[in-house]
Amino acid sequence: MKFKHKFIILVLIVIYVFNILPFSISFAEEFYEDKETLNFLNNESSLSEEMKKEFKDLLENLFSQRNDAIVSGDCDLLKGFYDLNIKVSLWAYESEAKKTQYLINWSEKQAVKFRDLKSIVRIRKVAEKEPGLYGVICDVATDFNYYYIDSPDIINHFRLGTNHYLNLKKENDKYIITKEWYTDPFADSLDIKNIKSEEISKYILEHQPPEFIPNERQLKAIEYAHTYCGISEDDNFIFKYNSKYKNHNPDGGDCANFASQILHEGGGFKKNQLWNYSGKEGTKAWLNAQGFKNYMVGSGRASYIAKGTYQQTYKAAFNMKPGDFVAYEKKGRITHISTVTGFDSKGYPLVTCHNTDRLLVPYDLGWSNDNIRFHLIHVHY
């Protein structure tokens, strides 16, 4: 076979493979496939419950300091947990400082202030990797409480869930973070550039929540999303998904799978040959973010409200209703799906989704880079 023909066949194979993969690449894939993390999960002996309690208290203090840094805007509060002379520890600190600054920038754009943040920590495993060096894997649910600057008495609330792997080194009477990886809800967007914040803030502040009464199918979709998002406000249900479905985060992402569940289990949309899930496996339209968006719009079960950058679409977003969904495009492909399940006190759309787990989070938070395109999709219930 001639080289040209071989090359064409190879290109076709690559195109085929990338279009049938039932997931979108995300930081979750890197987290679960990190060799050190997997070796730690599989091979290291876990410490006693007493030691787990010690590290739980330590980490709750760590996340409390991080939360205070966001509220106060003072990143120096974080420095005590790092050794800035160690490169990886310095990088971990700088990463947290950048995320803190991003949240401050976002709040200014949004015309809100964070009142307080509170984190719930669940220790999954603690093990001594070498004398004085400990590995910890934990789940963290963080509640964010905020208010708009023109109505400080009205408190809005959302919750984020993250999975963390940390190396902690004991130095004298305290522990220092030498490494940290986690499923980061802001990994895809840490910049707010060239955005007319004053114009956006003014527009948002002019709004009030709409008078919206969901129909029965929309109501059930909302209830399903809030129950199985992984960080339900029922504290006995934190970090749990619906066991009927495989958690596809280790495969690269579970966002489309969860959005499909919301529409089927909650919204009553029937499965078919193209959009289907059975035996812990699903079709591309069910599991793949790009495939899900294309199927929903192409089948007539949904239609476009708007598409474009944040500045091009933020006004149209106020037309979204609970049960609709947002598809996030990066580098020409849809990489994430989240479902609108409520409004805040200004009628700003709030979304619920998997990887990372979000409950009633402002739809653009974590998606502020100028290369992100928003697809605002209305679902026909």
Rank of each mutant, 00 (worst) to 15 (best):
V121E: 05
T142P: 14
K315L: 07
Y203W: 03
S303E: 14
G308I: 05
Y175H: 10
F31K: 06
I195D: 02
V11W: 06
D139C: 02
L84Y: 06
L58H: 10
D68L: 14
F258A: 04
T335N: 13
H5G: 09
I231P: 12
K53G: 11
H226A: 03
S243Y: 01
L205T: 05
N294C: 02
A97G: 13
K307S: 14
V379D: 05
H164S: 02
G266P: 12
W106M: 04
W91Q: 14
A187H: 07
E130Q: 10
D150P: 12
E206M: 13
K220S: 07
R333A: 15
N288Q: 12
A302L: 01
N242T: 02
L77W: 02
L12S: 14
S72L: 12
W286H: 11
G282S: 04
V361I: 11
K109Y: 08
K280N: 13
H157W: 04
S232V: 01
Y182Q: 06
F18C: 13
K293P: 02
E206V: 01
S119Q: 07
G132K: 05
K220W: 00
G347T: 09
M296R: 01
E211W: 03
K129N: 01
S26A: 14
L77G: 09
R301H: 13
F63M: 10
L62T: 11
A225N: 01
T341S: 14
L274V: 06
G279K: 09
S189I: 00
Y32P: 15
K193V: 09
R301D: 10
K202S: 12
E33S: 14
P209A: 04
T339C: 15
A92I: 00
D234T: 06
G291E: 03
D143K: 12
L274F: 11
N85Y: 09
A302M: 02
N371C: 01
D34E: 12
N105K: 13
N257K: 00
N156M: 05
A285N: 14
E108T: 12
K169V: 10
W181A: 11
F81C: 06
Y245D: 02
E108K: 15
N156T: 06
H380T: 13
Y295W: 00
E33W: 14
H264M: 09
E199V: 12
F31L: 08
K246H: 04
A111E: 11
N172A: 13
Y348G: 07
T183C: 04
L62N: 10
S368R: 09
N156S: 10
S26I: 03
Y228D: 04
F258E: 01
T339Q: 11
S201Q: 14
R159Y: 01
I13M: 12
I9T: 13
K270W: 00
D153T: 12
I155R: 04
T341E: 11
G323T: 07
I137H: 03
G300N: 09
E206I: 01
S89P: 14
M320E: 07
L274N: 15
I155C: 03
A225H: 00
K246A: 12
